[in-house]
């Protein structure tokens, strides 16, 4: 690293928050993607929506549970909704709750009631829109919660929430892929078409994701206060995870698999392998992306009388390294 200002990475938000962000984003992404796919490909609409609404529930619940487990005073979690007018965390909390409820409502709505009910598809549509909006908010909140921190110049870019949204969507598609694969095991169910569709769109989204990621990092590299952060990711402590995990495993490989599978129209076992590869690698990449971007966060140096003063390593953690007594 050629920056001579020592940098210290945040140690405040750790794996629980990262897993939380990962799980809720892929849940939200899965829902949104499924909804969009079901609009574009009405023939698969039931399948997509059923899978999405089903998957969202456990993902969200585990995600929320992880967040709660991160809290120091868990019993006070109910207060998380108190401050939506300025706190992105509060907004996120509300969004999560709303999304969860709507998703359950949506999921439990009968697909076609015995006496034909013409208003039902419309209800599905409206509910889908509303739920998607809440899911979008869930997708947005993680990125915004970071991007609104003045103390972390490295995150202060609209590109970060955008990146989180895009990667949430790609992750969501991968969830769908995984679920379709599982469903495919059931005899008599042909999931090939929807699978190809999901793979194909995952590929498109990954292209966008790669572009946004590149833009974000080059933005960070160009900003003096965020340069150290960009370097930690691309050349420093997180470089291996980043290049191998996020770029190759999380973007390039699944992108290749996805597009190839879609355009080569492969079938059978090969398709299953490709899809599995894409979903697993892609999801790991989606997780690692969050891991790297969140863990490497470098807060702004203090500037004192013209001198940049780095806060000590543990600035935001309790200070003591005391050994145990007795």
């Amino acid at each position: 690293m050629n920056s001579n200002i020592p940098v210290s990475m945040q140690q405040v938000w750790g794996w629980r928050v990262i897993w939380h962000l990962f799980l809720v984003s892929i849940a939200a992404g899965a829902y949104i993607c499924a909804f969009i796919l079901s609009l574009v490909y009405p023939q698969h609409s039931r399948l997509f929506m059923a899978l999405a609404t089903l998957a969202v529930v456990p993902l969200l619940i585990i995600g929320i549970a992880l967040l709660i487990s991160h809290l120091g005073a868990k019993t006070k979690v109910i207060r998380a909704f108190c401050h939506p007018n300025s706190s992105w965390l509060s907004r996120g909390g509300i969004a999560l709750l709303v999304f969860l409820v709507l998703d359950i409502v949506h999921g439990s709505l009968p697909l076609n009631a015995p006496p034909p009910t013409p208003w039902l598809p419309f209800l599905h549509f409206v509910l889908g829109i509303v739920t998607s909006l809440s899911a979008l908010l869930v997708l947005l909140y993680g990125g915004m919660a970071l991007a609104r921190l003045r103390s972390f110049p490295c995150w202060r870019s609209e590109l970060l929430p955008l990146l989180f949204i895009v990667s949430g969507l790609s992750g969501g598609l991968m969830v769908l892929v995984l679920l379709l694969l599982i469903l495919g095991i059931a005899p008599g169910l042909d999931v090939r078409q929807p699978l190809i569709l999901a793979l194909q769109h995952a590929g498109y989204v990954l292209v966008i994701q790669g572009i946004v990621l590149g833009c974000y990092l080059s933005w960070a590299k160009g900003l003096p206060a965020a340069r150290g952060y960009a370097l930690i990711i691309t050349r420093g402590a997180y470089s291996v995870t980043f290049w191998v995990g996020v770029v190759v495993m999380g973007i390039l490989v699944p992108l290749g698999f996805g597009l190839y599978a879609a355009y080569a129209q492969i079938e059978g076992l090969l398709l299953i392998i490709f899809a599995l590869e894409l979903a697993v690698f892609g999801l790991v990449g989606t997780l690692l992306l969050r891991y790297v971007l969140v863990s490497a966060g470098v807060s702004s140096a203090l500037s004192v009388e013209g001198n940049p003063v780095t806060l000590p390593q543990n600035a935001r953690a309790p200070t003591s390294h005391l050994v145990r007594y007795r």
Binding site: P312, N314, T319, S320, H321, L322
Partner: peptide, 12 residues
């Protein structure tokens, strides 16, 4: 002294 130790441990 535990308090003095705490300070000196964090002193560069």
């Amino acid at each position: 002294n535990a308090w003095l130790a705490e300070i000196r441990d964090t002193d560069p």
